[in-house]
């Protein structure tokens, strides 16, 4: 298996501000990779360099073995930008035809590839409408169709679901994962929702211009999530005595006891020891969202 993207020691500063500080990562061909980070973490800068919109200060970026600034690399990439960039006065089909021709497709190739792009993104029904008359979800579909019109091997999406309602977000997401699974397209997307990244094969987390964690969603959960139990004791002193006797670390806040667990199953002996002393309790698995906040240092702020 080939690697779709190789990024080595990438650095980029603007006016003295170091947006990307020596980032290295790879994206496997055929994978669905989420590039996760809070706003201003350097995601868009990295993406822009991969798409050759920005020139890096140092470091190397290659796409399917070609330097990111090469024409081959640009042909291999389809990009969906965060903000809508198609022309409002043109119909969706016209937009796709114009963009496709910019990739040097011939008339026949163009006709075929425009229809295919419209089809795989379910954009057929509004293909004849002007882009500016479309709803947010339809625009996103058209944007994705635009990104696919020249038959790229790698689809890059910069926060594709931002500004969409939850239902539309879901359908856009399904379209993207279908393209990945059924068409074998390598997908790299940026998001600041951990919840979205849980569907990815690989997650790369970036914060303040540096990569702070990477792995599959399961690995990240194992490594960074903390499970916990909270309980409301009937008698606080009695509960505290037992917990101290068992050597369990805890803290109390407004009469609620919180106990950190390395896994949820560890709650069982504690609960049985506290039999009859507890009014209510809750055992929670740590969420990836919490892990993300923990990893990026946003949680403590």
């Amino acid at each position: 298996m080939m690697t779709a993207i190789v990024v080595e020691e990438l650095r980029k500063s603007y006016d003295g501000f170091e947006a990307v500080k020596g980032v290295s990562f790879t994206v496997r061909e055929g994978s669905f990779t989420a590039f996760l980070g809070p706003n201003g973490a350097g995601k868009s800068t990295t993406i822009s360099i991969i798409c050759s919109l920005l020139q890096q200060d140092s470091g190397r970026v290659s796409v399917f073995g070609n330097d990111a600034s090469s024409l081959e690399s640009r042909r291999a990439i389809g990009v969906v930008f965060q903000d809508p960039l198609l022309d409002g006065m043109l119909t969706v089909r016209e937009n796709l035809e114009v963009r496709g021709a910019m990739y040097g497709l011939s008339k026949d190739e163009l006709r075929h590839s425009v229809e295919k792009a419209l089809e795989v993104t379910d954009s057929m029904e509004f293909a004849g409408q002007r882009y500016r008359t479309l709803s947010g979800g339809q625009r996103r579909r058209a944007d994705i169709a635009r990104a696919l019109v020249h038959g790229p091997r790698l689809l890059i999406l910069d926060e594709p679901t931002s500004g969409l309602d939850p239902r539309t977000r879901r359908t856009i997401w399904d379209t993207i994962s279908r393209l990945n699974r059924e068409q074998g397209l390598t997908v790299l997307l940026t998001t600041h929702y951990m919840e979205e990244a849980t569907d990815a094969d690989d997650v790369i987390i970036i914060a303040k211009g540096e990569i702070v964690a990477r792995g599959t969603p399961a690995q990240l959960r194992d490594e960074y999530c903390t499970d916990s139990m909270t309980l409301v004791p009937a008698n606080l002193q009695a509960v505290e005595r037992i917990l101290e006797g068992m050597g369990v670390a805890y803290d109390t806040d407004k009469g609620v006891v919180r106990i950190g667990l390395s896994r949820t199953a560890d709650a069982v002996p504690i609960i049985s020891a506290l039999q009859g002393m507890v009014e209510s309790l809750e055992v929670r698995s740590g969420t990836l969202d919490e892990a993300f906040l923990e990893i990026t240092g946003e949680g403590s702020e």
């Binding site: 919109l53 640009r74 930008f81 960039l85 198609l86 910019m102």
Partner: peptide, 9 residues
């Protein structure tokens, strides 16, 4: 919006 042109070859 020129980005959509600049990403093409």
């Amino acid at each position: 919006r020129d980005r959509d042109v600049l990403v093409t070859p």
